[in-house]
Design a binder for these strands. Structure first.
Length: 440
RNA sequence: CGGGGUAUAGCGCAGUCUGGUAGCGCAUCUGGUUUGGGACCAGAGGGUCGUGGGUUCAAAUCCUACUGCCCCGACCA
């Protein structure tokens, strides 16, 4: 992509409304634009990041055995009356009337709808286990949205729903998602900590929040440092192996880790002093087992091998990709701007032409540009006639992992400069070497 | 929802108290000089002053109602 033809509205000044660093940088780097309180338009660069996150989330959901579908944003109130949540949900639910005065709503979550879909088709235990997920926009009419896309009213959520014949099956479904989440966040470059969370009316120990540590996080968290050293399960993990998954989850839930709501001073105090961690964190995922809470009122039953119908045991599992964009920036930035991890960077390389119009630099840039494109490496070529300083500032701000800087100085020796954004390391190399270097 | 702010050009702001032809910086456009970490000079364009009502010869400014947005608290992927 040539920057001169792209849509990248960079802000030089910091918008005064943005309080936290990720919000400031998202606005400055032209990732999002606020359209209303807690409602954002995703600009081209931001959308590319969001899509990359979605792709990783999707791969790990698929790997764990979940199946993607897509449910609508608009839902009928009748569905929610069946579960009793139409009245229970309160003002956070955006309620709308259609032209026939029918009660509709913008979905804040999809337990009701997925249970309706399930009961319409599934009759036999032989069709289980089943885990269906989608990545869809949600709306929760927060009293006070803040922190940009970290807490917005409209937000993107990956929500998965599992269906099993019994609690043991549901526990395994829960473990699959638990492991999938560990892998997802690790692939995004984040260290996530599963923390015991409120389970609501069902009770038991089957709800965890996945927290990443960040000083701007909204939750107070306490944990045993040893949880940070655990190895994330590899891609060869057998998601069908009940014992293997239970062992992994057991290891990850053994060290103490809790948010302030679930914090147990006595247990925390027993941790050796040098392993205590009290910090702030951002909730990036939440998983629940809730048994037959929805399957019973909805009559979502399957016939077991004994010929008896039973309501299915369900769980739900959420990740917020639009929040993750902000969370990732909180984790990966410096004074100059964003420094994206390679896996989610909107482009892999920024190619900077320091002297547009100069025959030699133009030609060298075209060579690099074509070499990268032919290797399917995403490159954003700054072919604008801005000055060097401005180009450097923009490149550092938008934070592409690599910068290839082409100017008369190094080109005199037939060389270009390669800068790694994360640590600022620079190397002067030939064009061929530069391409190989960023190609990894 | 309670409390506190704020609304003037794309962005950041002054002007409001004390009514009298709407300004500054950045950004944008034109020309020129520049050109390796956000250049300089000269010129230009761009604003129903959040919206409605009122007072006045005259309203960004005074009165009034409404709305948007932001911050602090309780709720949430």
């Amino acid at each position: 992509m040539r920057l001169s033809r792209y849509f990248l509205p960079i802000l030089r000044d910091t918008p005064k409304d943005a309080e936290i660093v990720s919000h400031r940088l998202m606005l400055r780097a032209g990732l999002v634009r606020q359209q209303s309180a807690g409602i954002y338009a995703w600009l081209p660069l931001g959308l590319r990041v969001l899509s990359k996150i979605n792709a990783i989330v999707r791969q790990e959901q698929d790997r764990s055995g979940a199946i993607e579908l897509l449910m609508p944003t608009m839902q009928s109130a009748d569905l929610w009356r069946e579960s009793g949540r139409y009245d229970a949900y309160g003002k956070e639910m955006l309620r709308i009337k259609d032209r026939h005065e029918r009660d509709m709503l913008f979905g804040p979550t999809n337990e009701e709808m997925i249970t309706d879909i399930f009961r319409s088709y599934v009759r036999s235990y032989k069709d289980l286990p089943l885990n269906l997920y989608h990545i869809q926009w949600k709306f929760r009419d927060e009293i006070r949205p803040r922190f940009g896309t970290m807490r917005s009213r409209e937000f993107l959520m990956k929500d998965a729903y599992s269906f099993d014949v019994d609690e043991a099956g549901a526990r395994h479904a829960y473990n699959r998602m638990f492991v999938a989440y560990l892998r997802t966040f690790a692939r995004l470059g984040l260290t996530s900590i599963p923390m015991r969370a409120e389970t609501g009316p069902i009770g038991g120990d089957l709800s965890h929040e996945f927290i990443i540590l960040a000083s701007t996080g909204e939750s107070e968290v306490y944990c045993d440092k040893s949880v940070l050293d655990l190895a994330v399960p590899g891609p060869d993990t057998d998601f069908n192996n009940v014992e293997e998954l239970q062992t992994i989850v057991g290891n990850w839930t053994k060290p103490y880790a809790a948010t302030s709501e679930m914090h147990d001073e006595a247990v925390y105090d027993a941790i050796p002093e040098d392993r205590k961690v009290a910090a702030r964190g951002i909730e990036v995922g939440h998983i629940f087992y809730f048994g037959t809470k929805y399957s019973e009122p909805f009559g979502a039953k399957v016939t077991g091998p004994d010929g008896v119908d039973r309501p299915v045991h369900m769980g739900s599992y959420g990740i917020g990709p639009s929040r993750l964009v902000a969370a990732l920036i909180e984790a990966f930035h410096d004074d100059q701007g964003i420094a994206w991890p390679v896996e989610i960077a909107p482009f892999h390389v920024g190619l900077i032409n320091l002297k547009v119009g100069d025959e030699a630099t133009d030609a060298a840039c075209e060579t690099v540009y074509r070499a990268l494109e032919s290797r399917n490496i995403d490159v954003l070529y700054d072919d604008t006639d801005a000055r060097a300083g401005g180009k450097f500032a923009t490149a550092d701000l938008i934070g592409l992992p690599w910068q290839i800087i082409v100017g008369p100085k190094s080109l005199a020796d037939g060389k270009v400069e390669v800068k790694r954004r994360a640590d600022g390391e620079r190397r002067v190399v030939s064009i061929e070497e530069a391409v190989l270097l960023v190609a990894g």
